[in-house]
């Protein structure tokens, strides 16, 4: 069987098209690249949706934590502490069993116990908490002069936030937020190892890598392939976020622009 046949057979395995049964023996290098690549689509699905939805919620969280009103500040602080202070792995487990319980209460909660929705919700809340903290930190470090200038122009309320605070906050937070996004993509590999069941062997990249490593009893091929895909993804994220960073900094003189640096040093 040529490699192209394999690609046709397994390239969309993770989203339910093509061959349903995974190869059990004689797993070739081509099989491995195709299957793990197919799994990457699931990681991308979780990562992209969680980052985009989490971004909006994170902004709200940062504003809430920044506000002087304890009725909005306290809940935001607790939310951020809850999700940043506990391991994502435990959050997945807890959420999964909570969703199972809810399913028993009312069948309308049924889809929550499937990974595509349940795990996405957990990732969304988790990344919102981490990004919210980043944005909050950036809000605190907006230069005093910027706010004074806004006051001098007579900007108040929403227009002051929209035209001065928010763009500066984004600009200051962006390098850290880039790393957060990279790390979220890495965290998506936890989904299928933490309770959420794999349906019809449609898992993510790590699920396939582990499947192959278990079948061939040789970890030295599938895991480096996985690493290759993730390094590629990381570079892609850096490129994309770097472009946005450039746009956010476009009004500044060259020397003052902050660069996006790959610097992840956290685990969830």
């Amino acid at each position: 069987m040529s490699c192209w046949d394999t690609v046709q057979k397994y390239a969309f395995q993770s989203i339910g098209y093509g061959e349903r049964v995974l190869p059990k023996s004689d797993i070739t290098l081509c099989d491995q690249f195709t299957l793990i690549g197919s799994g990457m689509m699931v990681n991308l699905y979780f990562g992209i949706l969680a980052v985009m939805s989490g971004f909006i919620f994170a902004n709200a969280l940062a504003m809430a934590k920044f506000s002087g009103n304890p009725w909005t500040r306290k809940p935001a602080e607790w939310f951020i502490f809850l999700f940043r202070g506990s391991p994502l792995f435990i959050q997945f487990f807890f959420a999964y069993f909570l969703f199972i319980y809810l399913k028993g209460v009312a069948p309308i909660f049924g889809p929550l116990s499937a990974a595509w929705l349940g795990a996405l919700i957990v990732l969304f809340l988790n990344t919102a908490a981490y990004s919210g903290e980043i944005f909050y930190g950036a809000l605190l470090s907006i230069p005093k002069g910027d706010m004074e200038a806004a006051d001098a122009y007579g900007l108040t309320g929403w227009s002051r936030f929209r035209k001065v605070m928010w763009p500066t906050m984004m600009r200051l937070a962006w390098p850290a937020y880039t790393n957060e996004a990279i790390f979220l993509f890495h965290a998506t590999t936890l989904v299928y190892f933490s309770g959420f069941p794999v349906w019809r062997q449609q898992g993510d990249a790590l699920y396939y890598a582990k499947y192959i490593a278990d079948k061939t009893f040789n970890p030295f091929v599938p895991y480096p392939i996985l690493a290759f895909y993730f390094i590629l993804l990381t570079l892609l994220v850096i490129l994309l976020f770097g472009l946005i960073n450039k746009r956010l900094n476009r009004h500044l003189p060259q020397a003052q622009r902050s660069k996006v640096k790959y610097k992840p040093n956290l685990i969830r």
């Binding site: 890495h186 965290a187 790590l206 890598a209 009893f217 970890p219 895991y223 996985l226 993730f230 390094i231």
Partner: peptide, 21 residues
């Protein structure tokens, strides 16, 4: 660089078999 660039959980799964072997 290698350890920081790849999902940690992949490293955990990898090393446990790799070290054993």
């Amino acid at each position: 660089a290698a350890v920081r660039g790849v999902p940690d959980i992949a490293f955990f799964l990898f090393f446990v078999i790799a070290l054993d072997q």
